[in-house]
Amino acid sequence: MLISNAYAQAAGAAPDGMGGLVQLLPIMLMFVVLWFLMIRPQMKKAKEHKNMVDALAKGDEIVTQGGMAGRIVKIGENYLTVEVGTIKDQSVEIFIQKNAVANLLPKGTLKSL
Protein backbone atom coordinates (compact mmCIF):
# COMPACT_ATOMS: atom_id res chain seq x y z
CA MET A 1 0.00 0.00 0.00
CA LEU A 2 1.10 3.49 -0.73
CA ILE A 3 -0.83 5.16 2.08
CA SER A 4 -0.18 4.13 5.65
CA ASN A 5 -2.93 3.78 8.22
CA ALA A 6 -3.62 6.74 10.49
CA TYR A 7 -4.22 5.95 14.14
CA ALA A 8 -5.82 8.24 16.69
CA GLN A 9 -3.54 9.66 19.33
CA ALA A 10 -4.06 8.99 22.96
CA ALA A 11 -6.42 11.45 24.65
CA GLY A 12 -4.60 14.36 26.27
CA ALA A 13 -5.61 16.39 29.28
CA ALA A 14 -9.27 17.33 29.52
CA PRO A 15 -9.95 20.94 28.38
CA ASP A 16 -10.84 23.32 31.19
CA GLY A 17 -13.78 25.74 31.10
CA MET A 18 -11.57 28.86 31.37
CA GLY A 19 -9.76 28.21 28.08
CA GLY A 20 -12.43 29.93 25.97
CA LEU A 21 -12.58 32.96 28.25
CA VAL A 22 -8.81 33.38 28.24
CA GLN A 23 -8.83 33.36 24.43
CA LEU A 24 -11.54 36.06 24.31
CA LEU A 25 -9.86 38.28 26.91
CA PRO A 26 -7.53 40.11 24.45
CA ILE A 27 -10.46 40.89 22.14
CA MET A 28 -12.54 42.25 25.01
CA LEU A 29 -9.58 44.31 26.23
CA MET A 30 -9.09 45.82 22.76
CA PHE A 31 -12.79 46.76 22.63
CA VAL A 32 -12.59 48.50 26.02
CA VAL A 33 -9.51 50.47 24.95
CA LEU A 34 -11.18 51.38 21.64
CA TRP A 35 -14.27 52.58 23.55
CA PHE A 36 -12.34 54.89 25.88
CA LEU A 37 -9.89 56.23 23.29
CA MET A 38 -12.12 56.69 20.24
CA ILE A 39 -15.85 56.18 20.64
CA ARG A 40 -16.49 57.95 23.96
CA PRO A 41 -14.62 61.21 23.08
CA GLN A 42 -16.36 61.33 19.70
CA MET A 43 -19.77 60.97 21.36
CA LYS A 44 -18.88 63.73 23.84
CA LYS A 45 -17.79 66.07 21.03
CA ALA A 46 -21.00 65.38 19.08
CA LYS A 47 -23.10 66.15 22.16
CA GLU A 48 -21.24 69.46 22.71
CA HIS A 49 -21.77 70.42 19.04
CA LYS A 50 -25.49 69.63 19.27
CA ASN A 51 -25.82 71.79 22.40
CA MET A 52 -23.97 74.65 20.67
CA VAL A 53 -26.21 74.43 17.58
CA ASP A 54 -29.35 74.35 19.75
CA ALA A 55 -28.18 77.48 21.61
CA LEU A 56 -27.60 79.60 18.48
CA ALA A 57 -29.45 82.92 18.50
CA LYS A 58 -29.98 85.84 16.16
CA GLY A 59 -26.94 88.14 16.17
CA ASP A 60 -24.40 85.42 17.06
CA GLU A 61 -21.18 85.41 15.07
CA ILE A 62 -20.24 82.02 13.66
CA VAL A 63 -17.76 80.20 11.45
CA THR A 64 -19.04 77.49 9.13
CA GLN A 65 -17.27 74.22 8.43
CA GLY A 66 -16.25 75.70 5.08
CA GLY A 67 -14.46 78.54 6.87
CA MET A 68 -16.96 81.30 6.11
CA ALA A 69 -17.55 83.76 8.95
CA GLY A 70 -20.75 85.72 9.42
CA ARG A 71 -23.53 86.94 11.67
CA ILE A 72 -26.83 85.09 12.08
CA VAL A 73 -29.74 87.13 10.71
CA LYS A 74 -32.56 84.59 10.80
CA ILE A 75 -32.99 81.15 12.35
CA GLY A 76 -35.26 78.50 10.87
CA GLU A 77 -35.92 74.95 11.95
CA ASN A 78 -33.06 73.41 9.96
CA TYR A 79 -31.43 76.40 8.24
CA LEU A 80 -29.82 79.69 9.17
CA THR A 81 -29.59 82.92 7.22
CA VAL A 82 -26.10 84.33 7.71
CA GLU A 83 -24.88 87.79 6.72
CA VAL A 84 -21.34 87.37 5.37
CA GLY A 85 -20.63 90.90 4.15
CA THR A 86 -21.87 93.91 2.21
CA ILE A 87 -21.65 94.92 -1.44
CA LYS A 88 -22.67 98.46 -2.46
CA ASP A 89 -24.42 99.03 0.88
CA GLN A 90 -26.47 95.82 0.55
CA SER A 91 -25.89 92.90 2.87
CA VAL A 92 -24.90 89.56 1.36
CA GLU A 93 -26.81 86.73 3.01
CA ILE A 94 -26.41 83.00 2.58
CA PHE A 95 -28.47 80.04 3.76
CA ILE A 96 -26.67 77.24 5.57
CA GLN A 97 -27.72 74.17 7.48
CA LYS A 98 -27.53 74.46 11.24
CA ASN A 99 -25.17 71.48 11.42
CA ALA A 100 -22.69 73.29 9.16
CA VAL A 101 -21.79 75.69 11.99
CA ALA A 102 -18.33 74.79 13.24
CA ASN A 103 -17.65 77.44 15.91
CA LEU A 104 -19.39 80.21 17.76
CA LEU A 105 -17.23 83.35 17.83
CA PRO A 106 -17.08 85.90 20.65
CA LYS A 107 -19.10 89.06 20.04
CA GLY A 108 -17.25 91.71 18.02
CA THR A 109 -14.87 89.28 16.32
CA LEU A 110 -16.12 90.11 12.83
CA LYS A 111 -15.37 93.82 13.29
CA SER A 112 -11.75 93.02 14.10
CA LEU A 113 -11.33 90.94 10.93
Rank of each mutant, 00 (worst) to 15 (best):
P26T: 02
H49Y: 08
G20S: 10
L21T: 06
M43P: 01
W35Q: 11
P41A: 00
M43A: 12
A46W: 09
L25G: 07
V32F: 15
L37T: 08
L25W: 12
V32M: 07
K45H: 10
F31S: 09
F36A: 00
P41G: 09
K50H: 07
W35S: 00
M52Q: 06
M30T: 12
L25C: 01
K45Y: 04
G20C: 04
L34G: 11
F31D: 05
E48M: 10
I39C: 00
V22F: 05
Q42F: 01
F36V: 06
R40D: 06
W35P: 00
M28N: 10
P26C: 02
K50I: 09
L21P: 01
L25A: 15
L37I: 05
L29T: 15
L21W: 13
W35I: 02
H49S: 08
K47T: 07
L29H: 03
M52C: 03
H49T: 09
M52D: 01
P41K: 06
M43T: 06
W35M: 13
Q42Y: 11
A46Q: 15
P41V: 01
V33N: 02
M38D: 04
K45S: 12
P41C: 07
K44L: 11
M30L: 15
K45R: 14
M30E: 03
M28C: 08
I39D: 01
M38Q: 08
K50R: 13
P26A: 06
E48A: 15
Q42K: 07
I27F: 05
V33A: 05
K47H: 10
W35V: 05
L29W: 05
Q42E: 13
F31T: 09
L21D: 06
I39H: 07
F31V: 14
I27M: 01
L29Y: 02
L34V: 07
L24E: 05
I27T: 11
L34F: 15
I39R: 00
L21N: 08
V33H: 02
I39S: 03
I39K: 03
L34Q: 02
K44C: 01
M28K: 03
M28A: 04
L25M: 14
M30V: 13
V22I: 12
H49Q: 15
L34R: 04
K45C: 02
L24F: 04
K47E: 15
M28G: 15
F36D: 03
L25N: 06
H49M: 12
K44R: 12
N51H: 10
K47C: 05
L21V: 03
K47Q: 12
L21G: 13
K50V: 09
K45G: 01
F36T: 06
M30I: 14
L34I: 13
F31G: 09
Q42C: 04
Q42T: 08
I39G: 00
K45W: 06
L34K: 04
K50D: 11
Q23R: 12
V33C: 01
Q42D: 02
I39W: 06
K45D: 10
L24T: 02
Q23C: 03
M30N: 08
K44P: 00
F31I: 15
R40P: 05
H49A: 04
